[in-house]
Simulated assay, not measured.
Amino acid sequence: MKLDQIFSVSLIYATFRSATPIIYAALCAAITQQADILNIGTEGIMLTGAFTAVAVSYMSGSWLMGILVAMAAGFVMAGIMALAHIRYKAEICAIGMGINLFALAITKFMLNVIFGTSGTFSDPAICPIPRVHLPFLEKIPVLNQIFNNWTITEWFVIVLIIIITFLFYKTRWGLRLRAVGQFPMAAQTAGINVNAMKYQAILISGLIGGLAGAHLSLGYSQMFTENMTSNRGFMGVAAMYFGGAHPVLTAIGCLVFGFADSIGARLQAYGVPSQFVLLMPYVVTVVVLSVSMISKQISEKKKKSSLAYVKSL
């Protein structure tokens, strides 16, 4: 086993490529978390978007139409969550798990009904998300390996991180969203419609979750496989906790998952047992969650000690 072949320049792009679907999922969870809503249903929203994107792309021959309809499907799934949680006071974790199970069942059923197959659907008629080729990078081998031939949605996720960061911390809407999440009674007293803000957060997260699924099935691959999200939605939630729902820090957490996945895939080529490779992302998930929880406990202790010191003065 040669380490230089595993830790090569191409590993940088491989890490980002593997992390991109998780980044979308994490941003989906981060938006609702700012409103103090844990979006466990990210996995189901992604899976629904992945199937819808493939089906529409196959039937229409348009990758853009596939993405738009996938986002609409994610919007509908998120709407169900929002209605159940906000209007009918259902426990958000319970309704989120219900959405995940429903998405798993309905995509499997529709795969059989529409395409007459089970397991996997792949066809040359599926129109994938195009890749952006930059000819001037061909003269710079290192940059060519890292930045050339990215899909449009891989470039867009960077733009989306910037946009959401700006919305969270530089706009009145973001201030109100964070106020609703941290101080709902104070926000209501200030005249903010708390329920309306929560609806907006969940529905916007549905759009991003649908986009995450579309990227997974049309950008990351060119097919649909039953349960193809493979817990990426849950990894996104874990990364969101790691980053404290901050878009940039959350994306960094996702890169950790992408790095583990890319390293695992390369190790498998050198005879490392597949069971160990498949285990790596879940081990990383546990480690990331543990680190984030410990950090949160330490920060809370510091706050309590500071408050006690202030009171003693």
Rank of each mutant, 00 (worst) to 15 (best):
I22N: 09
V288H: 04
V283E: 10
T229S: 14
K302L: 15
V159Q: 13
W150M: 15
M228K: 02
F75C: 06
G66R: 00
K108W: 07
G116Y: 13
W173C: 05
S18C: 13
G191A: 12
Y13S: 11
L143P: 00
M97Y: 02
L279N: 08
P135V: 15
C127F: 09
R232S: 03
L27I: 14
S118R: 10
L278E: 14
A260L: 07
A25K: 00
V76P: 01
G253D: 07
T250F: 01
G219R: 02
A214T: 04
A94R: 10
F121L: 10
A30H: 05
V291G: 08
A251K: 00
L101A: 07
Y169A: 05
T48V: 11
H246T: 10
V286R: 03
G243Q: 11
T151N: 13
F75I: 07
I106R: 07
A29F: 06
A265P: 00
Y88Q: 10
E226K: 05
M228P: 01
L177T: 03
A186I: 12
K198L: 02
F16T: 05
G206H: 10
A72S: 12
P21Y: 08
A70W: 02
E154R: 01
F7R: 09
V157L: 10
V291S: 08
M97N: 05
M280R: 00
H246A: 12
S295K: 07
